[in-house]
Computed example of a mutant assay.
Amino acid sequence: DLVDTLEMMVQSQARIRRKQRLRPKERNMEEQNLIMRAKELLMERNNMSESEAHRYIQKCSMDSGTNLVETAQMVISLIHV
């Protein structure tokens, strides 16, 4: 019936969203450059390695509920005050 069909469609969409979340996000060059610039600033200012800077941006991103690019933009704007 209609309810079963709707339920199957909802479950199918949820499966598709889960697969998309598991796949690494493809970023354009501008986004990659923003993340790299934020990492460079953290490396210079805080004596971090690249992996430490990347992990720091990831953690801030998760803690604040923003994506990596938005977090990188925040890091850049805070350091360039």
Score class of each variant (00 low, 15 high):
54 H>R: 12
8 M>A: 14
38 A>N: 05
30 E>C: 01
2 L>S: 06
55 R>D: 06
40 E>C: 08
21 R>Q: 15
77 S>L: 08
17 R>Q: 14
12 S>G: 06
22 L>P: 00
75 V>Y: 06
3 V>D: 04
14 A>F: 02
53 A>W: 04
76 I>S: 06
31 E>Y: 02
37 R>V: 01
45 R>K: 08
22 L>E: 15
60 C>N: 08
52 E>I: 11
16 I>G: 01
19 K>W: 11
45 R>G: 02
8 M>R: 12
31 E>H: 06
25 K>Q: 14
37 R>K: 12
58 Q>T: 11
54 H>Q: 10
40 E>S: 09
65 G>M: 04
29 M>I: 07
2 L>G: 03
75 V>I: 15
29 M>W: 04
53 A>P: 04
64 S>P: 00
19 K>M: 15
17 R>G: 00
76 I>K: 06
42 L>G: 04
79 I>Y: 09
52 E>V: 10
37 R>S: 09
17 R>F: 09
46 N>W: 04
42 L>C: 05
20 Q>F: 11
73 Q>E: 14
56 Y>R: 10
28 N>T: 08
24 P>Q: 14
69 V>Q: 02
50 E>Q: 09
15 R>A: 13
75 V>L: 03
28 N>V: 05
70 E>Y: 03
16 I>T: 12
75 V>R: 07
13 Q>K: 07
54 H>D: 01
23 R>D: 15
17 R>S: 09
26 E>P: 00
48 M>G: 01
56 Y>C: 06
18 R>A: 15
52 E>M: 09
9 M>K: 14
81 V>W: 01
48 M>A: 01
38 A>T: 03
44 E>K: 11
76 I>Y: 06
70 E>K: 11
44 E>L: 08
49 S>C: 05
76 I>M: 06
52 E>F: 02
52 E>S: 10
40 E>L: 08
71 T>M: 14
39 K>I: 03
30 E>R: 07
60 C>K: 15
64 S>T: 14
45 R>C: 08
49 S>I: 07
30 E>A: 10
55 R>M: 03
10 V>P: 01
17 R>P: 00
68 L>M: 13
70 E>F: 02
38 A>C: 02
7 E>F: 07
9 M>V: 11
43 M>L: 02
65 G>C: 06
81 V>I: 04
14 A>E: 08
23 R>M: 15
14 A>C: 01
4 D>V: 05
35 I>H: 07
1 D>K: 04
68 L>N: 09
2 L>E: 09
79 I>G: 03
27 R>H: 10
45 R>H: 11
53 A>S: 08
12 S>E: 14
18 R>E: 11
52 E>Q: 15
9 M>G: 04
53 A>R: 07
79 I>L: 15
77 S>G: 02
46 N>C: 08
75 V>E: 05
70 E>T: 14
67 N>K: 07
14 A>L: 13
40 E>P: 00
35 I>Q: 09
10 V>W: 03
58 Q>W: 05
26 E>C: 04
30 E>H: 03
32 Q>E: 15
78 L>I: 00
25 K>F: 07
46 N>L: 10
74 M>A: 09
66 T>R: 12
44 E>Q: 10
9 M>H: 05
71 T>K: 09
